[in-house]
Design a binder for these strands. Structure first.
Lengths: 243, 243
DNA sequence: GCGCATCCTTAACCTTTGTTGGAACAGGTC
DNA sequence: GACCTGTTCCAACAAAGGTTAAGGATGCGC
């Protein structure tokens, strides 16, 4: 994997979310990044561990999740390329959840040491990364609303809308279909429902002609119906650095 | 309200959560803080606003919440004294949720300008505040698990356990009772259930001799039963700066 | 003391979601 | 081809939680 591509995916994300000046960008460009490939369905870091680096997703999909004592698993967020899903470990040394690949992925590891040196040398880069973790928190807030307030079918539709909006930034959301590499069991874990019920609502959304969730992707069947069924306001994603 | 008391509540929180050296502490001490009193049930900042300062809770209780288009309200977190519930607005200019007092409260407002100057001058203070916002996110993650995975009675017990643990840090959790100034409707909004159902589970927990939620407080009826009913691991609160 | 508003409480009924168990299908391996 | 394993799909029944409606308590203002 060529270093220019790696940096491009990182910088695209940071640039859409914050304003970076040329000096910041060149400082980020000189960050050492160790590229590694990862199988699908494998933990990158697990609950209780103390990682020594942060993980940039160069290509692929990851989820973060927590497991309860009763064995239930809750998916907390879905991550796409360009994101650093465990940036929080920079200041929260011990993981309180798992980070897992959904599909075979290319990852870039950046040591805490080099990140800390960078943030201390350049407060404006610290601000950008800080902001990134705050957007993470904003997405968790919306996820709470999703699980707490919406009926199951609307929950699924909302997750689809969000992922679609985020993929659009990376220029990879084709008009009507997006990648969605979750099994029905994982969809259940994301929405706080059983896999059986996940299957029911997927069927229902398909029959109602709204979206078709299958084979690792989502086909939007009717844009208008979807927008009506799951009203989506992307403000919480804070994609505009000046707003 | 005497300035020393104000600083004490802020520093206690930051000190239990991060390691601050004497120079950091004295820099924080010189932060300008405008103290104001607020009625109960009133918004401090609302969704869509662009506040110019952050709000320290000196005395009282606040919640953060989001309202859906269908009118449902979801409480996202409960905040106690010493906390800065909208620290995130430092880098996320536009609020994506509301911050509301539950009871008459004393608040300290600290301008974004002075906080930004401080974090840029002292990277270690920036790290401490950054860490604080990351703990915020960790609490949201646990809140997602609570709403997504646990049956309603266990959800309530978990919220009680968490608040109890956090109040203990401020030395105000008496052995068997804690302040819990939420109406049953608000409890429902926190747990993602209707007020009627909130009433049902409160009754059940009381009858089962676990906790008694009433009159703005929670009485723990049986410590052992509670611990068994709602196993609680406080790791996600990241109260130990070195862990 | 009366009236008003807010909160707590309960009951009956209905809808959504969970549980159990099993069939059908695909991809991979021997 | 036969045999895995993981996934999708489905049906019947049970449990949790939502809805509606209404009565009782409590505190506050007048």
């Amino acid at each position: 994997m060529d270093r220019e591509t790696v940096l491009a995916s990182l910088l695209r994300r940071l640039n859409t979310v914050s304003k970076l000046d040329p000096a910041d960008i060149s400082a980020i460009r000189s960050l050492p990044i160790a590229v590694r490939h990862w199988e699908g369905g494998r933990a990158i870091v697990s609950d209780g561990e103390r990682p020594k680096d942060c993980c940039l997703i160069i290509e692929g999909f990851c989820v973060r999740s927590k497991t309860t004592v009763r064995g239930g698993r809750q998916i907390l967020s879905i991550h796409i390329r360009g994101e650093i899903p465990d940036l929080q470990s920079l200041h929260l040394q011990t993981m309180d959840h798992d980070l897992i690949t959904l599909v075979p992925s290319t990852l870039g590891f950046i040591s805490h040491a080099s990140l800390r040196a960078l943030t201390h040398a350049r407060p404006s880069v610290a601000d950008a990364l800080w902001r990134d973790t705050l957007i993470d928190a904003a997405m968790f807030r919306e996820w709470i609303v999703n699980v707490g307030q919406r009926p199951a079918p609307a929950r699924l539709a909302h997750v689809v809308m969000e992922l679609r909006r985020r993929l659009a930034v990376t220029k990879r959301a084709e008009a009507a279909a997006i990648e969605f590499p979750l099994t029905q069991e994982q969809i259940g874990e994301a929405l706080g429902i059983t896999p059986v019920h996940a299957n029911r609502i997927i069927k229902q959304l398909r029959q109602d002609g709204i979206v078709d969730v299958s084979k690792g992707q989502v086909q939007v069947l009717d844009e208008t119906k979807l927008a009506k069924f799951a009203p989506f306001d992307d403000r919480y994603l804070h994609l505009d650095p000046s707003a």
